[in-house]
Every structure is written in structure tokens, then in C-alpha cells.
Design a protein around this nucleic acid. Structure first.
Lengths: 140, 140
DNA sequence: AAATATTACTTTTGTTTTGAAACTAAAATA
DNA sequence: TATTTTAGTTTCAAAACAAAAGTAATATTT
């Protein structure tokens, strides 16, 4: 049978930064991980509803990639047969520190674009990064 | 006169993560910042020679964007008239923590692809992240 | 001084990725 | 039974990317 798969990643080099970017270096991947980790989103339509308005085809592509590379697992809801649940793995959760640093960068250098809520989150990260990471890791 | 400019960024939302990605969310931007911060590259041809082999047109595009958004400044060499020097700004240096977290992620989860050198760098980051950041910040 | 090489790009052309919209199929709800 | 919801897929045009070749100024070699 014909399986539609993301083509195999070829890593451009053996640099860990480059390899990480080969997997999540685009405008959408990190936002999906953000939604999984900080907004407890789990379903296709929840991701699709985010402010940035990802297109359905791109979302489907990234979720497939994430599944293929162990960033999320795909499962079925216990309550009904049509809802698909995406759950972040430990490998995916390990992107949280990257995301927190992006928040700090954004809050510092794009100040005027950023909400007060985001600014207060940045403050919280600066005060106690480990606590923020631990909290995300215990959502599950 | 006709100026060739990167079109204005439109930020997809007011999320600091999303905004940061609007600027550097692609496969190349962070690698150029890596080369500036960790390998002291300053010229077009030095960037072009990196292992990942960025195409000249893409490199030119990203350097222009970086200049426009204050990530680097463009200057002339004191020694000769043809070399152009790109220098990272404090705003650009503030991406270093993001990069260090990508190194840690890559070293942990893509272990088999990564060089021993990169692994030992990851160890150093884990031992004393602040020292690594400080060292990068004092290259200049 | 002339020829060659280097540097920093730009241009061209073809391919790939993205984005928007419409469409589908199964399941759930009214 | 009809409508809505969920999770996608398909289509097609536009934008971004990649590889290669070209250019112009400067620097080096012969």
C-alpha cells in the first residue's frame, strides 16, 4: 500500500544545531510544540485555531514529521472515535528550554509587539526558569 | 534609485515566540549567528564555506535581513577595500542562549549524528552555561 | 603591466515549499 | 434524517529555495 510519508531527513552536517534545525527549523514547528507544552492543546483543530493560523496541510505535515521523529505520539480519545490526540514525548518536552530562551529574546528585543501577558511570563522565566520547566514537565 | 529590500516582516501574532520565529525561523538564520558567535566568522565567503553549504543568494538575503533588523552591522575592513565585515550586535548575541539550548537538545536526542567535539561542548554548557555565554560576549 | 584570482555579491532558471481554499469521509449531534 | 464537527487531503497559484553562472571591483601573481 502507498504510504504518504515525509521524505527522510538528510542532515546537512554533523553540527547539533544544524541537525536540530533540520527537524524543527521552520516557522511552524516550534509553535506547535508551544501549543502542546504551554496551552495543553492536543487535537488538530485546537492547533489550527491558534492566532498564527497555520494552514491545515502544513499542520498535517508537521504532525506527521513529529510523529515520525518521536516528538509526539498519536492516539485516540477515550471518549469518542473521531478525536485524535497528539501527546508530546520527553524528546519533545526537551525543546521547552529552547522555547523559553526564545520568549526571553522576543520579550527583550521585540518589546513593542508583545503582550503584557507575555512580558510577565518572561519575568517568571527570568526569576525561576527551572520551576517553569518543571511545571511544564508535570502537566501530564 | 532602486533599492532591493527584504519585504517588511509581518508578525503573525503578538506571541514572542512567534515573533522571534518570524525573524529567524528558518533553516539558515541561526547557523549564520552560530558562525558569528562561535567561529568568529565575519565575511561573506567565510559564511559560505561552512559545512552546511548555504547558497550565495540565500546568504545575501539573510545578511540583509539581519542588517535591517539590527542583528548584525555591516562594515568595511581596515586592511583592504573589498572585504566586507559583518559584526554581531548585542541583539544578535542575545540569541546565544537559544543556540546553547539547541546544542543540548541535539546532543541529547541526535546523539548518533553528532561529533565528539559537539558532545564535549554540550558537556561544557551543562557544567557552566553562564561561563560559555560570557565567553562569547567577550570575543569582541 | 597584464593576467589571474578573490570577494561579494546578483541573476537566472528550475524545483520545492507554502498558503488559501475547497473538498472528503467518518463520526457525532440536533 | 439533516447538520455539524473532526481530521484530515487535494488542488493550484505564489513564494521561497537551490544550484549554477555571471559580474564588478579589488587584489595578487607573473
Amino acid at each position: 500500500m502507498q504510504v504518504k510519508n515525509n521524505k527522510e531527513l538528510n542532515f546537512r552536517s554533523d553540527c547539533p544545531i544544524s541537525c536540530a534545525l533540520d527537524l524543527i527549523g521552520d516557522k511552524w514547528s516550534i509553535l506547535i510544540i508551544r501549543d502542546l507544552c504551554f496551552f495543553e492543546k492536543r487535537t488538530f483543530s485546537q492547533f489550527a485555531l491558534s492566532d498564527e493560523k497555520i494552514a491545515a496541510n502544513i499542520l498535517a505535515d508537521r504532525l506527521k514529521k513529529f510523529e515520525d521523529y518521536g516528538i509526539v505520539t498519536k492516539g485516540k480519545s477515550l471518549e469518542n472515535k473521531k478525536t485524535v490526540l497528539y501527546t508530546i514525548t520527553p524528546k519533545g518536552l526537551d525543546f521547552v528550554p529552547v522555547i523559553l530562551e526564545l520568549v526571553l529574546w522576543g520579550a527583550k528585543h521585540l518589546d513593542s509587539h508583545i503582550t503584557d501577558e507575555a512580558k510577565s511570563f518572561a519575568r517568571k522565566i527570568k526569576e525561576n526558569k527551572e520551576a517553569v520547566i518543571k511545571k511544564v514537565n508535570t502537566y501530564e
